[in-house]
Design a protein around this nucleic acid. Structure first.
Length: 811
DNA sequence: CAATTACTAACATGG
DNA sequence: TTAGTAATTG
């Protein structure tokens, strides 16, 4: 987002120069001495008191590289924050000389808060505590010219990124269906995760995309970004690294500055982040990385578990400290998690233990339900039961694999009147009206922002359609200038039709006027003026659709939140970097979030629904990353279970709706990897028990059913046999086999995460109109229409439904 | 140029 | 199922 036009970093952070270097040594500067004395008087043991010996060592070993292997719930954040407090109170460094990196804004906030508690004061003095991205932005804004940008550069979000890429793919004359922007984005992303500029990308790798034009497209994309004075998320790191490499003096400045460096969640760093850290650490070796290889769940984002495995090698003389004493969970929960994760290979290996032995503690519960709706219902009931026993909703969470699972829970909670909050769900700043409004603001702050301009030229309708924009776009491209500038030039000529010309002219003067007001007007007021004068608010007022009032509310909320910032630019930056907003934390509500965003949190009770093959482990993880993908999924399961302090409740549904069609599922292999002694299987309630015990009605595929072949873990012969028998359709488990036999079209099947077969079936269904069929969920019915393997059936009881043919049988 | 309709792909995970 | 885009028509 545009930032501080004409005034770079000065306002963003304290100046480098006026801090005494000697501060690094105890007693160096007067201020340092005073600070140290003050906190010594406070009593050092104050904050060291509650630490166990390992934690204490991790805090006290200030000099030289340290790797803290911290299992789930072992007090990792505590160590980090105490360590920072210790550095400061010992006068080893100023807060401004400590670099502390986290992955999420949430974690950064939490840390700031806790440090504040420790050293008893505010922590504005920690300007370099933040996410990799926000710290990189800070550095880039200071030295933007060296990275080929202006300090006011915009940070593009994924959406803008895709639109830009699509334009570039089309401009190259490629078919944007065959070579999608999405694919290209993920390729470019993977390059940037490895800190590769267009010149550095390996020839062979780039050729695979866009008829061998991959490299050219990447270069073109970067070129466009710099014309737009914009950077995407990957660029924030990439540019900082190139900046450091090409400007040793700048690098040296930062090396000298950061006396101590701390990295949270080190297992999630990618190559670029690692290189970034290495560059800075060349100056001094006081690097402390904290992580847990068992909680590495961002491999798809380029994270290299290797970074943590190689730490001792990369940072010579590193001290490795293990934290294995868990303060969070009951022994049942720990046992379940440990047993599950032990199925992974290539771990550093930690054994969590706890003194928290409670003979009455609940075991980990595993329950099944007929379909995802019932799953939500059951969990809802259980929540209410807990609530009536005096548990608070704030102490409970539902952790799902994919966000689409949330809907059913939301629906249920609304009908129950249960308070809930979605964390990391559909984001406020991703709503259409907010993005539109933001686009207006961006155009004001950063006139070169074509993507924003294109978004709002004709919103509200101004009669500027494709034709007009094509002319503007053409000139902009030819002259390599921003579109607004091009539009301005075109207004002086005869090229645009008179009607279009006057409209464009007035829009441009509007923008000029707003731009003039940036300096003089309070941000809130300006935001309001822009939205009013542009006619954007009016557009929604005229709109008679159901969403319109809500959108107007959101706009109001947006304007209100502008007021929390001192400058307009500061607001824009916040939005682009911090997409999450703190929801109302005051009231009691159950949290609903993905497993990914649950990392680092803990709850008394944790619900883990949707443990089904294909969903968890996710099919795509298996297909795309094979065994590694499976192991990452398993780590995700581990993260999920270890979030629970007292109760973990796992469940799966026998039927789930995918793309609006009901499909039956197979229980997750992870269920079979839980230790029987610490797990309690809840009997399915009677509502669907009618299909016979041990048959389809139970969890046919689970080893909790003693007689079936799924006795053991996925790697055993039993599992493999079962998988084989399923994919060949010859009846792995009784109840289901009568459906599987006739129609073995079950999609790609995996054994141990390796792709076995991908069947793309367009075989006609073999059913005919009017035929009577039977479906497990809906009962008897008559086929109303057939499209490929999709049937529309009028069921006697359930009404008209669309189902896959493999889930009904002739009757 | 805009509105309506038809079609198709998506339901990973995030800064 | 639904959201997003392409094609068609006024």
């Amino acid at each position: 987002m545009p930032q501080h036009p004409g005034d770079p970093a000065g306002r963003i952070e304290p100046h480098f120069d006026n801090e005494p270097q000697g501060a690094a040594k105890p007693g160096g500067g007067i201020a340092a001495r005073a600070l140290a004395a003050a906190s010594r008087a406070h009593d050092v043991a104050d904050y060291l008191g509650g630490l166990n010996p390992e934690q204490r060592e991790a805090v006290l070993t200030l000099d030289g590289p340290v790797l803290v292997l911290a299992g789930a719930g072992t007090g990792k954040t505590r160590v980090l924050t105490t360590r920072i407090a210790h550095i400061i109170s010992q006068g080893k460094a100023y807060p401004g000389q400590i670099l502390a990196v986290t992955f999420t804004n949430k974690a950064a906030r939490e840390m700031k808060h806790r440090i504040g508690d420790l050293i008893g004061g505010n922590v504005e003095g920690m300007p370099w505590l933040g996410t990799f991205h926000s710290i990189c932005v800070k550095i880039l804004r200071r030295h933007a010219e060296l990275a080929g940008l202006k300090s006011s550069f915009t940070i593009l979000d994924t959406d803008d990124q895709l639109r830009l890429m699509k334009q570039i793919i089309q401009a190259e004359g490629l078919d944007d269906k065959r070579w999608t922007a999405r694919t290209f984005a993920s390729i470019v992303d993977s390059w940037k995760n490895r800190a590769l500029t267009p010149e550095q990308v390996p020839e062979g790798e780039a050729r695979a995309f866009g008829n061998g034009k991959g490299k050219k497209l990447y270069a073109e994309y970067q070129e466009r970004l710099s014309i737009l004075n914009a950077a995407d998320f990957g660029d924030l790191l990439l540019h900082t690294i190139t900046l450091f490499r090409n400007n040793p003096d700048v690098l040296a400045e930062y090396q000298k500055r950061f006396r101590y460096m701390l990295v949270d969640e080190y297992q999630d760093t990618n190559i670029a982040q690692y290189l970034w850290l290495r560059l800075l650490a060349q100056g001094n070796p006081n690097v402390c990385c904290v992580g847990d290889d068992d909680q590495s769940i961002y491999g798809w984002r380029g994270a290299e578990v290797d970074n943590i495995l190689r730490f001792e090698h990369d940072f010579k003389g590193a001290k490795v400290i293990r934290l294995e004493r868990n303060y969070r969970s009951t022994s049942n929960i720990l046992a379940a998690a440990s047993h599950l994760i032990s199925h992974n290979e290539g771990r550093l290996g930690k054994t969590l233990f706890t003194d928290f032995e409670d003979p009455d503690a609940d075991r980990v519960m595993v329950a099944s339900s007929w379909d995802s709706e019932e799953e939500a219902r059951t969990i809802g009931d259980e929540i209410e039961a807990l609530q009536s026993k005096g548990h608070r909703l704030n102490d409970m969470a539902i952790l799902v694999r994919a966000s689409f699972q949330m809907r059913e829970f939301e629906d249920r909670f609304v009908t129950l009147g249960l308070n809930y909050r979605v964390i990391g769900g559909p984001k406020f700043y991703e709503r259409m009206e907010i993005r539109d409004a933001m686009a207006y603001f961006r155009c004001v702050a950063q006139p070169a922002d074509d993507l924003a301009f294109e978004r709002i030229v004709n919103k509200p309708k101004r009669g500027l359609g494709e034709a007009t924009m094509k002319i503007v776009h053409g000139l902009a491209r030819a002259e390599r200038i921003p579109m607004m500038e091009a539009a301005g030039i075109l207004c002086q000529t005869e090229e645009l039709r008179p009607k279009a010309r006057t409209v464009v002219k007035s829009l441009l003067t509007d923008f000029d006027r707003w731009r003039d007001q940036v300096e003089t007007m309070p941000p809130t007021e300006l935001a309001e003026i822009i939205l009013d004068e542009s006619g954007y608010t009016e557009m929604w007022r005229q709109d008679r659709s159901a969403e319109a009032p809500g959108r107007l509310d959101n706009l109001k909320e947006l304007v209100r939140s502008v007021g929390e910032f001192e400058t307009f630019a500061g607001f824009l930056e916040h939005v682009s970097l911090v997409m999450d907003r703190d929801a109302g934390v005051d009231d009691d509500a159950i949290s609903l979030m993905t497993l990914h965003s649950a990392k680092g949190l803990e709850f008394d009770t944790v619900f883990l629904p949707g443990w089904e093959e294909g969903l968890f482990p996710h099919q795509r993880a298996l297909d795309e990353s094979g065994r590694a993908g499976l192991e990452e999924e398993r780590r995700l399961a581990y993260v999920g279970i270890t979030r629970a302090k007292h109760r973990a409740r796992i469940s799966f549904a026998v039927n789930r709706r995918i793309h609006g069609m009901w499909q039956s599922t197979v229980p997750s292999r992870f269920l079979d990897e839980l230790p029987e002694d610490h797990v309690e299987v809840i009997e399915p309630n009677s509502s669907y028990g009618g299909y016979g015990a041990g048959g389809f009605g139970g969890y046919g595929a689970s080893r909790f059913d003693n007689r079936d072949p799924f006795q053991s873990t996925y790697s055993t012969p039993g599992w493999q046999r079962a998988q084989r028998s399923r994919s060949s359709g010859s009846g792995g488990f009784e109840g289901r086999s009568r459906f599987a036999e006739r129609n073995h079209r079950q999609g790609p099947k995996t054994i141990e995460g390796e792709l076995v077969a991908k069947s793309v079936s367009d075989v006609p269904s073999g059913f005919s109109l009017g035929e009577r069929v039977f479906h497990l969920k809906f009962g008897y019915g008559e086929i109303a229409s057939i499209e490929g393997n999709k049937l529309t059936v009028d069921f006697d009881k359930a009404g008209r439904k669309r189902v896959l043919d493999s889930f009904v049988e002739r009757h």
